[in-house]
Simulated scan of single mutants.
Amino acid sequence: MSSYNILGAVLGATLSLTLLASDPALAAGSHGGGHGMEIGKPGDPAKVSRTIEIIMNDNFYEPESLDIKEGETIRFIVRNAGEFVHEFNIATAAMHEAHRPEMMMMVEHGVLEPDRINHEAAKAMQASMGHGMHDEANSVLLEPGKSGEVIWTFPEHAELEFACNVPGHYETGMHGKVKLSH
């Protein structure tokens, strides 16, 4: 079975489970909504205290968890070392759950292919639905072999994780905890 057939099976199963298990309010959530101080804010590059390299493999991250000080501004250099498109997204577990149906919609409209981002399909989706590619400061979506950067200032007292919300990826282990300390 080819990797495309396997991915198709995973995507189909994920869609079925998502539709069965999703709370309608979460399924209707907007990626652009809710990115308030509860998860932090875009960081000022002049205030970066350190840089952390994140490597995205096909079903896990390196490192698998992060130790961050409350209020710290981190530069993440994110590299996709896998064979598929992956996302590095900093949010709460509930926000990730609410975002996954939007990522599934991107697959359904041909924006996210297993190993590439179809920018023409993203433009068509944007024109027809008002939603195509997302561009949020807490997230980067990368094709295989590509790198990106996220600069983020972390809040106090939050339960955060980083995750890949491409359909099926979170469920196969592409998420990790952010441990905030004083």
Rank of each mutant, 00 (worst) to 15 (best):
E149Y: 13
S147W: 04
M129C: 05
L141K: 14
G148F: 03
L141Y: 05
D135I: 12
N138F: 15
A127I: 06
S147P: 12
N138C: 12
A127N: 04
V140Q: 14
V150D: 11
G145N: 00
N118M: 00
A122F: 00
S147N: 06
Q126W: 07
L141A: 08
M133Y: 04
I117H: 02
I117T: 10
V150A: 11
H119N: 12
G130F: 12
E149C: 08
V150R: 03
A127K: 15
M129R: 14
R116A: 13
G130C: 13
E120P: 03
E149Q: 03
A121H: 06
S147Q: 13
E120V: 08
I117M: 05
P144C: 01
I117Q: 01
R116N: 10
G145K: 10
A122M: 08
D115F: 00
H131N: 11
K146T: 10
G148P: 09
G145Q: 01
H131P: 03
N118A: 00
D115P: 09
H134M: 14
L141T: 13
I117V: 00
E149G: 11
G130I: 07
H131T: 07
E149D: 01
M125R: 07
N118P: 02
A137Y: 15
M125K: 15
S147M: 06
G145V: 06
H131R: 14
K146L: 05
K123S: 07
G132L: 02
N118G: 00
A124P: 06
N138E: 13
V150M: 11
G132K: 01
D135M: 12
M129N: 11
D135T: 06
S147H: 11
A137F: 08
K123P: 02
S128W: 09
H134Y: 14
K146R: 15
G148H: 02
H119V: 05
R116T: 07
M129V: 03
I117W: 03
D135K: 12
M129D: 10
G148S: 08
L141R: 07
M133L: 14
A122G: 04
P144R: 02
A137R: 00
A122W: 06
M125H: 06
M129G: 09
E149H: 11
P144G: 09
G145S: 03
S128M: 10
E136T: 08
H119M: 11
M125V: 06
E120A: 15
G145M: 02
A124M: 11
S128R: 10
M133Q: 10
Q126I: 00
E143D: 11
M133A: 07
E143I: 02
M133F: 12
E136Q: 08
S128C: 08
L141F: 08
E136D: 12
A124G: 10
R116L: 10
K146C: 09
S139L: 10
E149K: 06
M133D: 13
K123M: 12
A124W: 05
G132H: 11
D115N: 15
L142T: 05
H134I: 12
